[in-house]
Design a protein around this nucleic acid. Structure first.
Lengths: 187, 187
DNA sequence: GTCCACATGTAACTGGTTACATGATTGG
DNA sequence: CCAATCATGTAACCAGTTACATGTGGAC
């Protein structure tokens, strides 16, 4: 139950149409809560039905016409409630770690190339975060909002840094592995 | 499409029944790919139907009777194929970061306590990993399988360390924040 | 014999993904 | 007028979650 709250947050930052939201999800909020346009339209419909948001201006009919939304007081209240409510962290899910564990059983063939690919992807992502850091968090940005958003960005930067570090280590380790398909008795 | 492969890996490590798998998922594999018993039974049924695994011994009828499975050659082949196949990392999803971003808009009330709670949870998890490290990866464990599994554990340890570090920093930061409900013009 | 833990399952629901449909606007 | 792009949506599917159902075997 997080997508509606992600949307409420985005709409409070700036009233938007479905497609505008989709684009903003591809940039900022989407870095830690991605969503496709289909999800977003579905959720906008629900939120409007629940009276948490409303379509903005002059009556626009339906298809092809832009339709912007803004958050109603009830929506802001719901977001505040959700933000303050205690939530357990749900366990990590990581396919790459799973694959490594599988590789311990069926052999490491082919996985090294993908580790390398992931490494460059994470490097790219880190570079993107660094750019945002320089562009949006230079001097003079220390309102409460800025500081909170910077905290979130720091998490992104540090996570990418962790992955780059771990993948580098893993690849070094692979370099010293004896070539093999799987453990004795595999097939 | 990762759960079936997680199960294949676990069954290759050791043939098991549904409940045994569930318990093992709560311990080792579940640290980065959790699953409930309902998911596991459903998936075991599918895998058996596809001829990737088979029920082990003497005919046991159905309910209440333990039923163990082992992986068939086709299952091992499918796991090897999946392990070697390139896969994109899917974007992080993290509710806590989302909440922080929401807090920048609707106010930080209540969230600090939960940050503290998360901090102790991550500290507990790290301690658990450290125990596993000492117990299972002391001296003399340097077969290829051991080294791969250790790499996975290292990822877990480093991730928990990252979170502990980040949460500590965030809480320090919160200490210096002026008390407030939300940005000017909130309600 | 009753209760509890072990063990296997079914059903309904929710959220995310993929594929596709449809209309409006604009540049050539 | 045609293609590309902007924009909103529908439908079907799949994986994960929650709640519940059912049977076995051992402890008391």
């Amino acid at each position: 139950m997080s997508l509606p709250h992600a949307i409420l947050t985005a709409l409070l930052e700036k009233p938007s149409s479905g497609l505008e939201l989709t684009r903003r999800f591809d940039r900022s909020i989407g870095y830690f809560w991605s969503a496709t346009h289909q999800q977003i339209y579905r959720e906008l419909g629900r939120l409007e039905g629940e009276g948490l948001i409303r379509a903005l201006p002059a009556e626009q009919p339906a298809r092809g016409q832009k339709k912007s939304y803004e958050v109603l007081p009830a929506g802001r209240a719901e977001l505040a409630r959700w933000t303050a409510a205690s939530q357990d962290p749900k366990p990590q899910r990581d396919v790459l770690l799973l694959r490594l564990r599988a590789a311990a059983v069926v052999g490491t063939e082919g996985i090294e190339a993908d580790l390398r690919r992931h490494l460059t992807l994470h490097q790219k992502q880190l570079a993107e975060y660094r750019e945002i850091e320089e562009r949006d968090f230079g001097a003079g940005k220390d309102s409460v909002q800025d500081r909170l958003q910077y905290l979130v960005l720091r998490a992104g930067i540090d996570l990418e840094t962790f992955w780059i570090h771990w993948l580098t280590q893993a690849l070094e380790d692979f370099g010293t592995l004896p070539a093999q398909e799987g453990p004795p008795g595999s097939a």
